[in-house]
Design a protein around this nucleic acid. Sequence first.
DNA 1: TATGAATGAGAGTTCATTCAT
DNA 2: CATGAATGAACTCTCATTCAT
Lengths: 219, 219, 219, 219
Amino acid sequence: MRVNLEARAAAAEQRKAQTRERLLEAAVAMIGEKGPDACSIEDFVAAAGVSRGTFYNYFPTAESLLHAVRLKIVASLTAVLDARLPKTMPACERLATRLHSYQVTVSRDAAWGWMMLRLDGSRLERTPALEASLDEMFRAGVAQGHFRNMDPAAARTLIFGTSRMLQRDVLMGLSDPAHGIEVIALLLTACGLPHDQAMDVSRRGAALAQEIQDAADAS
Amino acid sequence: MRVNLEARAAAAEQRKAQTRERLLEAAVAMIGEKGPDACSIEDFVAAAGVSRGTFYNYFPTAESLLHAVRLKIVASLTAVLDARLPKTMPACERLATRLHSYQVTVSRDAAWGWMMLRLDGSRLERTPALEASLDEMFRAGVAQGHFRNMDPAAARTLIFGTSRMLQRDVLMGLSDPAHGIEVIALLLTACGLPHDQAMDVSRRGAALAQEIQDAADAS
Amino acid sequence: MRVNLEARAAAAEQRKAQTRERLLEAAVAMIGEKGPDACSIEDFVAAAGVSRGTFYNYFPTAESLLHAVRLKIVASLTAVLDARLPKTMPACERLATRLHSYQVTVSRDAAWGWMMLRLDGSRLERTPALEASLDEMFRAGVAQGHFRNMDPAAARTLIFGTSRMLQRDVLMGLSDPAHGIEVIALLLTACGLPHDQAMDVSRRGAALAQEIQDAADAS
Amino acid sequence: MRVNLEARAAAAEQRKAQTRERLLEAAVAMIGEKGPDACSIEDFVAAAGVSRGTFYNYFPTAESLLHAVRLKIVASLTAVLDARLPKTMPACERLATRLHSYQVTVSRDAAWGWMMLRLDGSRLERTPALEASLDEMFRAGVAQGHFRNMDPAAARTLIFGTSRMLQRDVLMGLSDPAHGIEVIALLLTACGLPHDQAMDVSRRGAALAQEIQDAADAS
DNA sequence: TATGAATGAGAGTTCATTCAT
DNA sequence: CATGAATGAACTCTCATTCAT
């Protein structure tokens, strides 16, 4: 009996989690399509294939679903990349690789990319976890003598703003590979790297990001 | 009789233009208050003091009103500034001044700043007129030997993205004057100016922008 | 032109008043049928033959419609009767006639009667205007030596409570004419009239109420 | 084995009865709080601490739960009182005591009082068991020479209606003890008792009702 | 042209009810 | 029997849009 009840409860838990997951995935798709503001609860449930009422068993408002989507994404985003990059890699290369890697992900999954762009579009929100990790790379770059010593807040504004705008170029099909390489090289230049070195680092970062993505696809 | 009819027609024209103007101004106010997505036609007509039906004599949809608002604003923005800057000013200084000038305007009128930020929020749209004018400054800077010769598209991505993000910093109160100066200096650095010169130019641009704004306030 | 505009405005006013009236009448019918709590806005607009949205041009909530219905009814109720009864009539006769008259109205228009019963059913609310007019009749009856001198509050409780319950008997078809006459005679008895006189007065009141109603129907 | 099965069945019976009881008690509490119309099944099961589905094992609809609540209450009400009143008490005293006793209960537990008032609110329903017991008291009163011989239906209308209205006075805090005594004396007067005797009987009934309540509280 | 009453599609939300476990 | 996730009908309210005046 005991086992039976436990197994039953576990199965129920799993089914709940599945429904929740379907709602989250549907939200990613819908947000990418129409933007977060134009999405209605009706849209979400239709895309997820559940009934209107079911929505409210999982989220009290549409807003709270968007919030859950953000949390889920940010968590998955940093984890994947950090695991693949060698610890000894110089900060400027790490930064370039991460920025390129983000653009590769965006170009692979445009729906996801649009969603990310629009999710915080109207507020230009920045995720604290990402800011912290960016600051750390920046400090390391200064210590390694590659970056000029300056206010990290200025670097954040430059990098977040430019990266978002590059993402938009990619999604609109305005960006060939060379464009991305040049834009990210400009960021490194602004941070203090000589421009020709910056171009080299950006190129290597682009190649590495592609490689990582291909490896992930293969597995 | 002829005169009478003409006068009458002219008066009618003027009334029309006035009504349209009131709708545009009401829209600026409402968008700054609630954001473009939350504004209903009801909001616009109530703020403008005209009736529901009248709206449709001027704009077919709410969207088209927003579009008209953008056009009007961009036109006034560039006109004001170009008139004040000497033609002989080097392109890098001109660019710095324009970027600072925009931030000064934003910090003077936060409602307006929020409206601009949200108006094209989720699409990160760029106004063609601004792109063209930016390209021209960039070309001039290259010709004058201040900017590195590179793809103007990369510069656009860098400058538009960073400028928007800086605007957001200002609106959120996260930005002291030094922050703005440093961020814009980084843009100039990325474009090819040595960093210490870039800081000088950015500082002068900030001062000049402030001066222009004060002069405008005084008049 | 002036006349035209005024006439136009007046016509518009009248149409508005008609729509409002249709909603009020529909409300009377629906409340009588289902009770005020079970009535949805959907019910009201369907019964009135207007669209959902129109409702909100007239009343912000269903509650406010109910309120308007009450106001309208109470105003019409007292006015009609007072005009018909001679000023010199003794208070006990006036009271009997009014109570019978109310029951006659109820039996003529059951929907209206149910609505009145249910409108304040759950709260047993009493209309201040009616309380005041009842108090006055009671005082007059004491002065005329027909009623015992006692707390008017007790008389109010007795008369309102019994009258409502009699109304319910009538609506449920449990009441023949003799029942109503006896119940109202009991009220007069409780107020101090000897029982045989009370029966006479109640009988005369019933006849008079019927007469007044017939006259109203004829006109 | 046999014993085991029987014991098990008995235990199951008891659990069932307990769950049903918890639902009934939860219903009393919720109805007192929000009124019967505003109560959802969700409210009932949450207050009773059982699951949604369980509700339907005991009651087919929310309505039927309300009905069961009424029955339970009326049964307990009459049982308690009848046990305490001497059989030899004259009918008029018994009636006065019962009416006062009800008001005492109401003033002790306002939530319960509101629930009773609203439970049959808009229909002014009367419980057959109470009607029968009232008729019997009335017949006895006639036989004992205290009440006038008249249609019991008229007496029922008078007594039920007035008693409900008095209950409302009490719940709204509009009633001091003297008010209740006078109202119930008026009922007795209407039934045929001379008014001064009626006041005496009503006073004694009030005292006795209070006494019974105090005794119940003490035990 | 200006008006504003009327419209009805559609959004958010609640809740009685079902049913697999 | 108990559970609670899923369902979908019903409800309130908003708002873009139409149209007679």
